[in-house]
Computed example of a mutant assay.
Amino acid sequence: MFVCHGNICRSPMAEFVMKDIVRKTGLESEILVESAATSTEEIGNDIHRGTRQKLTKENIPFTQRSARQITSDDYQKFDYLIGMDDENIFNMRRRWNNDPENKIFLLLEFAGKTREITDPWYTGNFENTYSDIVEGCNGLMKDILKRLGK
């Protein structure tokens, strides 16, 4: 599960990029990919138009969706809970009892980096956000394949 502040820009972009990677590896039946928000600010809203435009430009399939907030059940449902920035990580740890099973990660950790995915809601730069998300998702897929023994 990918998590950002509002679940309209970064986390749904990561969700659909990862779904595309999973589909291309033929593991759709084994890997569930979703996204959610730490806040309630955008609940019910669809993907930001900048995210839709970037996914369309890159030929990444996506569907209409409604932003939702993380729930207590998400912690048990997902093996990876991936935040886009340090504030997301802080809020996720607070929500999920300080991550007793070590499931919470910053996306770019999977690319060997410690920096955050910048929020295009503020920067307007969906290109950089997309590049970082692709890099992180590719690293995540390598980690998943290793974990699955593939």
Rank of each mutant, 00 (worst) to 15 (best):
E15D: 06
N102T: 12
L27D: 13
D85V: 12
M141R: 04
K57N: 07
Q69R: 10
Y75H: 06
L108M: 15
R52K: 15
A67L: 09
A14D: 14
L81R: 10
P12H: 01
S39D: 04
L140K: 08
I89Q: 05
A111R: 11
S39G: 04
L55E: 00
N128M: 03
L55P: 05
T25A: 15
E42V: 02
I21R: 05
P100T: 12
I60P: 09
L108Q: 14
R94Q: 13
D74V: 01
M84V: 10
I70P: 00
Y122N: 10
E127M: 02
R95N: 06
N97M: 08
G139R: 05
M141F: 11
S29F: 08
T118V: 13
R49Y: 12
P120T: 05
F78G: 04
E87I: 14
F126Q: 01
Y130G: 00
E28Q: 11
Y75K: 06
V3I: 04
T51L: 02
N125D: 08
E127W: 04
Q76K: 01
K24P: 14
I21S: 15
L140Q: 09
P61E: 01
E28F: 04
R49S: 10
I70C: 00
W121H: 07
E34S: 10
V3A: 02
V22S: 06
S11T: 11
K54G: 04
N59G: 08
I8H: 05
E28Y: 03
T123S: 08
G139T: 07
N97L: 09
E101D: 12
L140M: 11
D86C: 14
M1D: 05
D73V: 00
L32Q: 15
F105Q: 07
E28K: 06
D132E: 14
W121R: 03
L108N: 14
L140W: 03
P12Q: 03
H48L: 03
L106F: 06
R49A: 07
T63P: 03
N102M: 12
E15M: 05
E58S: 09
G44K: 02
D74K: 00
K57M: 08
S66Y: 11
F105E: 12
D99T: 07
T63A: 05
K54H: 05
K24H: 13
S11W: 09
M84P: 09
M92V: 10
E15Q: 09
R52L: 12
N88W: 06
I82V: 10
K103G: 14
T51C: 03
L145E: 13
K24A: 15
N128F: 02
E101M: 09
G124Y: 01
M84G: 09
R65M: 15
R10Y: 11
I43A: 05
K57C: 04
A14C: 15
Q76D: 04
Y130M: 04
I144V: 14
N125T: 02
I133E: 14
L32R: 15
R49E: 03
Q69T: 09
Y75F: 08
G136T: 12
R10T: 05
A37Y: 02
G44T: 01
A67S: 14
Q69E: 04
L148T: 12
C4E: 06
G112N: 03
W96S: 08
I133L: 14
T56N: 04
R115H: 15
F90N: 09
L81P: 10
N98F: 13
P12V: 01
N91W: 06
